[in-house]
Design a protein around this nucleic acid. Structure first.
Length: 759
RNA sequence: GGAUGAUUAGCUCAGCUGGUUAGAGCACUACAUUCACAUUGUAGGGGUCAUUGGUUCAAAUCCAAUAUCAUCCACCA
């Protein structure tokens, strides 16, 4: 007796089971897939690889991640079904600063302090924390149907990867691209680390614009100023009065008639009581404020450049905690910048040097992660000169070795490369790959010698009145070098910027340049991710790829749309408008969610989550199940054998199906997923179901069981169904595989649908 | 300040290299249907394709300007 096929496709339970059967087949592993193709006598085409974007291991993946995987998986499945041993390589990202922040908070809520447990223990616990989260992330990936080879899964802090990352660093050092430099850098006082420019965002904030008088030193100048301006000094305007304590000049535009005669004259910096000079600087905006700019090289990127140009002194007055510090009056020490600003304004007002304070709105750079305003301060950091890499990357883009979809983003990327600045790659964190450098005699000595060209270790000892044990040289390596003549090695405490390691993802995950997988599966073919990380990630991967492998790491970057909350705003934890992927899976199933992504989350679009649309796709999934079930229901057990042994009938319907498959294949090859889903929906539903099945229904109505014509018609329908299942599989893998399984049960098909070949 | 993109039905968007009455999904209206369909089917309403010029036999599609929006980049004190 033929078994009853259940009336509905219960996605919530069936999907998990189906996924298991895929996994057990081992075909997610490209080596196995290749063998399968060979054994089955198919032509084996070139391998297809995507190193999947690793989600952060510090939390649950969101709908945006799922979206990316849906696209990856559709491509992967299609490639697998067209003869390519396919590797989708999954991983998880340690996400440096973000995870350190999250985990530190977690520790705090458990009543533990990061400093107390210490660096090693922190690292260990954080690692465990990530491992736990990884499991969760993996479950999500499998839930959406991601056909990735989890036997190759990697964590970005895996020692195997670290080895590759380090070797890149060594090579870059030898090539003179990586160096230590003392310059102005964005310091996040909350995360307590330096940040690259790209790791900051700009937010509009309310601020003040204070006009302060800097009196001239010479009596004659004071008189002239008094006549000209009504006050005995030059008035500067600033949004950050507190930085005046670190001023080392006042800049005016040489074309500015008002100040021309005062260039080279000295003014007395109020409160700090230091004499500073008025300099001519062409970049000074005559129109802005008073046209006179106070110059604080230590705490403003613009001023830093001016300072460099005019060899000005650098006076640090703010420390890495964002507190007032350094050579300033005692009463200001330890104050926050805003407090200090208030205190200063009060004193200036009392001494008649404060002209006015305007309230303004202005853009302030904030830390991308914690949104604390960053403090520009001077510090020693490791830098990577990416200019030559960017040039190569730009060339690769221009020559079409890599393309970005949508193309508008490609232009943005080109612009990024064309205007790239040295990249600060060191972070004052514990969570990440520790920079493999050792300083003989200490880090301070190395930096001092770098800063004071021509000076010696002896000079350092004299300057600081202390004896040092070491040469001031550095050693590159993971482990402490042997100590000779009692020299003391100090290990670098900083870690790499997380993008320095994830930028090498396409080859580090394949075992590095010597890896077996690297030889077989590199370069990869594609990269799919949200457009929000284009500059951070793909931009870096292209540069690293070209540098280490002399090949582009992938030839296509496909940017998915952004998934928004139902009301069109950005989903965010803080707003609480996020939707858990699990909710959608449980309610509508992965196939329905996938369909929605393909039709709505197109490159360059923003898609608010619309449940009713996912519901509509769920209906389509149900339709697939039911139509298939109906076709099978019409087959009597006694006919099965005859049906399966009937050859492919040459009918108009079969012909049209062939054209349809060709069309969808074409869409998939061009990554036009939206057109693909539209086509399969239209064809399966409104052609096969609404027309053909109805036709056949009446055609066989009068025929008796076992009638030759009846068998032929059913065989035709079966063939059409199978072709449809195959071409729909990349989009809706679960339901199609479930139907296929029913076919196998009836002896009408073999194996797994995922490994069938599309003709 | 710069760059890029968008502007097509109520909503989210397709519409490739210009060519018959401009499409889909969802929503909406009417009718039918429990015949496989936690429904489905049939029919239908709804758009001066942002505005204004231009190129062309022909433009939603190419060009220019304008407006609005979005995203990204940027050191304007």
């Amino acid at each position: 007796m033929k078994k009853e096929i259940s009336k509905t496709f219960d996605s919530a339970t069936e999907e998990l089971e189906i996924y298991k059967s895929w996994e057990e087949s081992g075909l997610f592993n490209p080596d196995n897939m290749q063998k399968y193709l060979e054994d089955a006598g198919f032509t084996v085409k070139e391998s297809f690889t995507i190193t999947l974007p690793p989600p952060n291991a510090n939390g649950a993946p969101h709908l945006g991640h799922m979206c990316g995987y849906a696209f990856h998986d559709a491509v992967g499945r299609f490639m697998r079904m067209t003869g390519h041993p396919t590797l989708l390589l999954p991983g998880k990202d340690h996400a440096g600063i973000q995870t350190e922040t999250v985990f530190t908070k977690k520790l705090l809520s458990d009543g533990k302090d990061k400093q107390e447990i210490g660096r090693e223990e922190f690292y260990k616990q954080c690692y465990e924390f990530c491992m736990e989260n990884m499991q969760n992330a993996r479950e999500h990936e499998q839930r959406i149907g991601l056909s990735a080879d989890f036997s190759r899964e990697l964590f970005t802090l895996d020692p195997k990867l670290t080895e590759v990352i380090y070797s890149t660093f060594y090579k870059m050092f030898e090539d003179g691209m990586v160096y230590r430099d003392k310059r102005i850098v964005n310091q996040c006082p909350h995360c307590m680390t330096a940040l690259a420019d790209i790791d900051t965002e700009h937010e509009e904030m309310r601020g003040i614009f204070a006009y302060i008088i800097y009196p001239f030193v010479e009596e004659s100048d004071r008189q002239k100023a008094k006549e000209k301006f009504g006050v005995e000094g030059i008035t500067v305007a600033t949004t950050r009065p507190e930085t005046m304590l670190g001023d080392t000049a006042v800049a005016v535009n040489p074309k500015d008639e008002r100040y021309k005669e005062f260039i080279g004259k000295k003014v007395l910096l109020p409160i700090a009581n230091r004499e500073i000079v008025v300099i001519a600087e062409e970049d000074t905006d005559i129109e802005l404020g008073t046209g006179a700019l106070k110059v604080t090289p230590a705490h403003s990127p613009v001023d830093f450049e001016i300072g460099k140009k005019h060899s000005l002194d650098i006076v640090n007055v703010i420390n890495e905690h964002g507190k007032m510090d350094g050579d300033i009056p005692e009463r200001f020490k330890g104050l926050g910048t805003v407090e200090c600003s208030k205190a200063l304004c009060k004193e200036l007002d009392e001494s008649g040097l404060l002209v006015k304070i305007e309230n303004i709105k202005h853009e302030v750079a904030v830390c991308e992660r914690c949104h604390t305003p960053v403090e520009p301060i001077i510090s020693n950091q490791w830098y990577l000169n990416v200019e030559s890499l960017a040039k190569k990357a730009l060339k690769a883009l221009e020559e079409g070795e890599i393309s970005v979809v949508p193309s508008g983003q490609q232009k943005a990327l080109e612009h990024f490369y064309a205007n790239i600045q040295p990249w600060c790659i060191s972070r004052q964190l514990w969570w990440g790959q520790r920079i493999p450098v050792w300083y003989s005699g200490g880090k301070k000595l190395y930096d001092w010698l770098l800063e004071n060209k021509g000076k010696t270790v002896e000079d350092f000892e004299k300057e600081f009145g202390q004896k040092v044990e070491g040469s001031g040289k550095i050693y590159l390596g993971e482990h402490e070098p042997k100590s000779e003549n009692g020299e003391v090695w100090e290990q670098e405490t900083d870690v790499f910027d997380t993008w320095f390691s994830s930028g090498q993802w396409p080859f580090s995950t394949l075992g590095g340049l010597e890896g077996e997988d690297f030889k077989k599966y590199y370069p990869t073919q594609m990269m799919i991710h949200g457009r929000d990380i284009l500059f951070w990630w793909s931009a870096r991967m292209i540069m690293f790829g070209l540098y280490r492998t002399e090949k582009v790491p992938f030839s296509l970057v496909l940017l998915t749309g952004i998934i928004l909350a139902p009301d069109g705003s950005k989903m965010s934890k803080s707003k609480g408008n996020g939707v858990e992927p699990k909710e959608i899976f449980d309610k509508y199933g992965a196939d329905a969610l996938r369909m929605w992504y393909y039709s709505d989350a197109l490159p360059g679009s923003n898609s608010p989550l619309r449940e009713e649309k996912i519901k509509g796709n769920r209906n389509f999934v149900t339709k697939i199940w039911n139509a298939s079930r109906f076709i099978l229901m019409n087959m009597e057990e006694s006919e099965l054998k005859a049906i399966s042994s009937t050859g492919i009938p040459q009918t108009e319907r079969v012909e049209k199906t062939r054209d349809h498959v060709k069309k969808v294949k074409n869409y998939l090859e061009k990554n036009q997923f939206n057109l693909g889903v539209e086509a399969i929906r239209e064809f399966f539903w409104h052609q096969l179901c609404d027309v053909w099945i109805e036709e056949v229904k009446s055609e066989i109505k009068e025929k008796k069981e076992g009638d030759e014509e009846r068998v032929e018609k059913l065989a035709e329908l079966l063939h059409i169904l199978k072709e449809n299942l195959k071409i729909m599989h990349p989009f809706v893998p679960f339901v199609t595989e479930a139907v296929w399984r029913e076919l196998v049960d009836l002896g009408l098909a073999d194996g797994l649908l995922m490994s069938q070949q599309i003709g």
